[in-house]
Simulated assay, not measured.
Amino acid sequence: MSTFVKAPQPLDAEYFRTRLLGWFDQYGRTHLPWQQDRSPYRVWVSEIMLQQTQVATVIGYFERFMQRFPDVAALAAADQDEVLHLWTGLGYYARARNLHRAAQCVVHEHGGEFPVESVEALSGLPGIGRSTAGAIIAQATGHRAPILDGNVKRVLTRLHGVEGWPGRPEVERRLWQLAEHYTPHWRCADFTQAMMDMGATLCTRRRPSCLLCPFEADCVAHARGEEHRFPEPKPKKEKPVRQTLMLMLRDEDGRILLEQRPSSGLWGGLWGLPQFDDQGALEAWLGHEMSDSVVQGQWRCFTHAFTHFRLEITPVQAHLPHQGNRHAEAGRRWYDPDQPDSIGLAAPVKALLESLSSSTLL
């Protein structure tokens, strides 16, 4: 692992801005959906969606989200289930829960207006950190607010040869100093977009297009032939592996039993299949809750990767001949795979439910 050393002095700020904005005027992205009819609300939703997600993936989700929730009041008034449903497939569902909570805060505590007067005020909303707040202010109001998202970190660490993992406090402080140094008081929205575009389209994680970069002659990493080494990755730790059994219990009408997960934690607030640590726990639950059910076997195990661990999922088929009305309690629902409800589903659960069409009756 590299040790942290003081990076070279920054470039002249005016030189940097002139070259960056010159490149942006020719090659930058200016026709993204959230760049049209800009408002703090539209920019905010896009920035949250773009966290750890590529632009190409976000565009469709953003357009559907805006169609259903055209303003912050509509989002604040929505049920969390519907918000999570429109988020299904984007992952990192805490973003959607925080988005919903933040909308309610804006409506009930700020009179429906985003507190874009300062980074500090805006970052007081759920799910908005310093960099996201800066991006919203710069993009929506044109006021000066530095940012430091993943793309910008990559550009600055390579340009200056900044050693160390950017998650380390001393490295992050150095990068914020550089971001502050370069951010202008004019064309702030374009400058912010240009920094993000540089990282997303030229200074990419793999195979950066150095020959097309306006800073090819200035980049420390390029001069060393070490673009691949910056930014330094987070120190690796072996991801632990967990196992779970997912019960696919189908009634005589072909519907699947779902349970709503707790509001926080893994897949918080989403609907999913009942989960168990082992076969004994699953069978004990069936014997107590669904005594006339019949277990019909297991599907092949598959793995779903999270940030900090891997989950090995084994689907278990079961059939309930006579459902009656005894299971209509809070936190449970019977879901028809052929007529799906508008509810939030975790990606592996959604895939399993889609496989249970009428042609695959248990």
Rank of each mutant, 00 (worst) to 15 (best):
L11T: 06
Q243R: 15
T132I: 02
F62Q: 02
Q26N: 15
L84T: 09
R255P: 08
M195Q: 05
L311N: 09
H100V: 05
L353W: 10
L273A: 03
I256C: 06
P115C: 01
E312N: 14
L211N: 14
L320Q: 07
E47L: 02
R332V: 10
Q298G: 03
C210Y: 12
G344V: 01
A102D: 02
R174H: 13
A121P: 00
A138L: 01
W23V: 11
P126V: 02
H160G: 02
S264G: 08
E354Y: 03
L356Q: 13
T244L: 07
F65N: 11
K239A: 07
H322W: 07
Q317K: 14
A103L: 10
M66F: 13
P274V: 04
F306L: 12
L320D: 07
P340L: 01
C203Y: 05
R242H: 11
L257W: 13
L99Q: 05
C213P: 15
M49N: 03
L75Q: 09
D37F: 03
Y335D: 06
A284F: 02
I343D: 08
G199P: 13
L148I: 03
A217L: 09
V58F: 07
G161C: 11
V220Y: 13
E63G: 06
D251F: 09
W176D: 03
P240K: 12
T303L: 05
R207V: 12
G60Q: 10
Q275M: 12
L245T: 06
R130K: 03
W186Q: 14
L245F: 08
D25R: 08
L86N: 08
T157M: 12
G89K: 10
